[in-house]
């Protein structure tokens, strides 16, 4: 048990050290959602949200979406660090140690997810600063954070899995572009599903980003906690499967 904690903590610490020492990337990850809120928030200021109570403005509706989007965009970059480690042979050295690879992956992903949660909270505060009216009640907020964390675990794992398979930053960038934008525009992050074309509404229903966005909206706009079975269980299953894929790929990697 002690060894497990030791490894996870060491990897967690290293991931955070590297994040802090790259302030440009960290800053940009906050500037991007701010721009989304500014441009979309004010562009669609008069957009009528048919299914929402009249007191909810578009910016209120948008902030939980941008919050979830921040986690998606950040998580999809998680594997880039693995590629850098691969390129300077550092990963081969890590693999050569007897430390369990699932713990190494666990340490990395937990550091990335903790960063994403902090970023999501900062985005919320930015949203409030821009004038969004949100509710902050402990239990729904906790439910929202768990939901974001599970989603973060899933997409960080997917990104790491792709990185271990793709082994180059160019391929990784293709994945990021291929996943992020379609995921965003086929979800309920920017528009309610009832105002989407029928086919898109069906797609949005199965989009995991919609699930996280809906959980966040329930917490922040209505102080509600959706039923765990339908709100968290699918995310938990997805996070578990993708984490196992990433950890197994790292374990079986032969990097010379």
């Amino acid at each position: 048990m002690k060894l497990y904690c030791l490894v996870i903590l060491a990897v967690f610490k290293r991931t955070w050290i590297k994040t802090i020492r790259r302030p440009v990337a960290l800053t940009f990850s906050l500037v991007q959602p701010l721009l989304w809120m500014l441009f979309f928030g004010f562009l669609f200021q008069r957009y009528s949200l048919d299914e929402m109570p009249p007191e909810i403005q578009y910016l209120d509706f948008l902030v939980p979406g941008v919050c979830s989007m921040t986690v998606l965009f950040g998580a999809s970059q998680s594997g880039i660090e693995l590629i850098r480690d691969m390129q300077n042979r550092f990963l081969a050295r890590i693999i050569a140690t007897p430390a369990p690879k699932s713990l190494i992956m666990g340490g990395k992903i937990s550091a990335d997810v903790s960063r994403l949660i902090i970023q999501a909270c900062l985005v919320l505060l930015l949203g409030v600063a821009l004038g969004a009216k949100l509710h902050f009640n402990a239990w729904p907020l906790f439910h929202m954070i768990i939901s974001l964390a599970l989603f973060g675990i899933a997409f960080c794992s997917l990104s790491c899995w792709i990185a271990l398979k793709a082994r180059s930053q160019e391929n990784m960038a293709t994945f990021v572009h291929l996943v992020n934008m379609p995921m965003l525009f086929t979800s309920t992050a920017l528009v309610p599903s009832k105002q989407m074309p029928d086919w898109l509404a069906v797609v949005a229903q199965f989009n995991p980003l919609s699930l996280v966005v809906n959980n966040s909206r329930a917490a922040l706009l209505f102080s509600e906690t959706p039923v765990l079975k339908t709100s968290l269980l699918p995310l938990l299953i997805m996070a578990g499967i993708l984490f196992l894929m990433a950890a197994t790929t790292l374990r079986s990697s032969k990097i010379n």
Binding site: L6, V7, A10, I17, N88, R93, A96, T97, A99
Partner: peptide
């Protein structure tokens, strides 16, 4: 221990941090 001809080090970390990191991966505490 296999010490490769390419120096597999993380340029962003300090030497001390690297030693601590690998101590942990080898189960030393």
């Amino acid at each position: 221990s296999y010490v490769n001809q390419d120096r597999a080090l993380d340029p962003e970390m300090t030497g001390k941090e690297m030693l601590c990191y690998f101590s942990a991966l080898y189960g030393l505490s």
